[in-house]
């Protein structure tokens, strides 16, 4: 199986978060806890279910990552964009006509 981390959105503000080894839900994918097998992935989801009950997060799911550098990076573009934000700069105040 691929290596995975669990991601979700915070309930209160909707921001993208990942479960860290500390048990905290953090914004940095690179600091997320990595599951290397199915049992570990199941454990991540189980802890996420607890976080739902605690009203911290919504919609947790596993995402595939590569961890070649020791820090997880999302495999799919969609998850890369979730991790780092839109690839386009929002409207600027100083647009020229």
């Amino acid at each position: 199986m691929t290596t995975q981390v669990v991601s979700a959105n915070r309930l209160d503000n909707g921001r993208v978060v990942y479960l860290a080894p500390s048990g905290q839900w953090i914004g940095a994918l690179s600091e997320a806890e990595v599951a290397h097998d199915a049992t570990a992935a199941e454990s991540l989801l189980h802890r996420a279910a607890t976080a739902i009950i605690d009203r911290l997060i919504v919609g947790p799911y596993l995402i595939s990552v590569t961890a070649a550098t020791g820090r997880p990076q999302a495999e799919r573009l969609r998850e890369q964009i979730r991790a780092t934000g839109p690839t386009v700069a929002p409207a600027h105040h100083d647009r020229a006509a």
């Binding site: 503000n13 909707g14 921001r15 993208v16 919504v58 919609g59 969609r78 964009i81 979730r82 934000g85």
Partner: peptide, 10 residues
């Protein structure tokens, strides 16, 4: 009430 949960936020 028009509130979605999208990729990055509500």
């Amino acid at each position: 009430n028009g509130l979605y949960l999208q990729l990055h936020a509500y």
